[in-house]
Write a protein that binds this DNA or RNA. Structure first.
Length: 106
DNA sequence: CCGTTGACCAGGC
DNA sequence: GGCCTGGCCAACG
């Protein structure tokens, strides 16, 4: 495989998030698995205020289904509104339904 | 260059 | 069942 530069880890995270189908969500660990980086770097990359048009960071939630605290675009409420618009189902606790979770695993 | 920080996750109490 | 600690890795100052 072609060697990648250190900062390419960020790009890998962005591309991984882009692979998430509409109406589905995934966890940081999944992105880290796809981008071959630790969840720490995933969160750092997404918090780096990426292009919300190219990188749907709102589709990335906690493994518990909880939304992202301190959402940069206007709070957790904004993220939930976007996910609802995508067709993601939410649980009673205000968390994403497990059925809306998407995994790259076969 | 070294230290700190960070949208995490898993394990322990 | 909720809260705390440790560990992983990369970017920022």
């Amino acid at each position: 495989m072609a060697s990648k530069s250190t900062s390419d880890k960020y790009a890998a995270v962005y591309e991984a998030v882009r692979q998430i189908p509409k109406g589905c969500v995934t966890g940081y660990g999944i992105i880290g698995y796809m981008a071959d980086v630790n969840p720490r770097v995933v969160g750092y990359a997404l918090h780096s205020n990426p292009d919300s048009k190219l990188t749907p960071c709102h589709r990335v939630v906690f493994k518990d289904g909880k939304l992202t605290p301190g959402y940069v675009f206007g709070g957790e409420n904004a993220q939930r509104d976007r996910l609802l618009d995508e067709g993601v189902v939410f649980d009673i606790d205000g968390k994403v339904s497990k059925e809306s979770f998407w995994s790259p695993y076969p």
